[in-house]
């Protein structure tokens, strides 16, 4: 009986070892999408005022700092990778990047996968508009 209980616990632990990271990844994915959506709305509001998007390539933290300072964000968003408020202008754990063209007429928001350089989500003003 003791063997069965110990074995069952090991089995449950292994099973949870597969399931929990998947749930965590799914939750992170939702939070990253939410962040991108909030930043996108803020960028559109910025564009309405300034007629251009922010002019240089920058990290997510820098962009959020800029948008927050200008009052374009309803509230400073949480960093999905740390689940804490973004440390602006420089957050050591930040996988969001902002890019624009030479004339600052378009933008690209890139969220990379943690611990790799893969693009997780991309939102830009010319092609990838929807995360749905």
């Amino acid at each position: 009986m003791k063997t069965r209980i110990i074995g069952l616990l090991i089995l449950v632990a292994l099973w949870l070892g597969i399931m929990l990271p998947a749930f965590s990844e799914k939750r992170l994915d939702g939070q990253v999408k939410e962040l991108l959506r909030e930043v996108q709305t803020a960028l559109q509001n910025y564009h309405v005022d300034e007629e251009l998007y922010p002019k240089s390539k920058m990290s997510g933290a820098e962009l959020i700092g800029l948008l927050d300072e200008g009052g374009y964000l309803e509230a400073p968003p949480l960093n999905p990778w740390t689940t804490e408020p973004y440390q602006t202008p420089d957050d050591p754990i930040d996988f969001l990047e902002y890019e624009t063209d030479e004339l600052a007429e378009t933008y690209t928001l890139i969220a990379r996968t943690k611990d790799s350089d893969e693009v997780h989500h991309i939102l830009d003003s010319t092609a990838h508009h929807s995360l749905e």
Partner: peptide, 20 residues
């Protein structure tokens, strides 16, 4: 019990659309 746990995993992956 292993296949039972695997079927349970299939059920959860499908309902929650988990990345597995």
């Amino acid at each position: 019990l292993i296949p039972v746990f695997l079927l349970l995993l299939v059920l959860l992956v499908s309902f929650f659309r988990l990345p597995i």
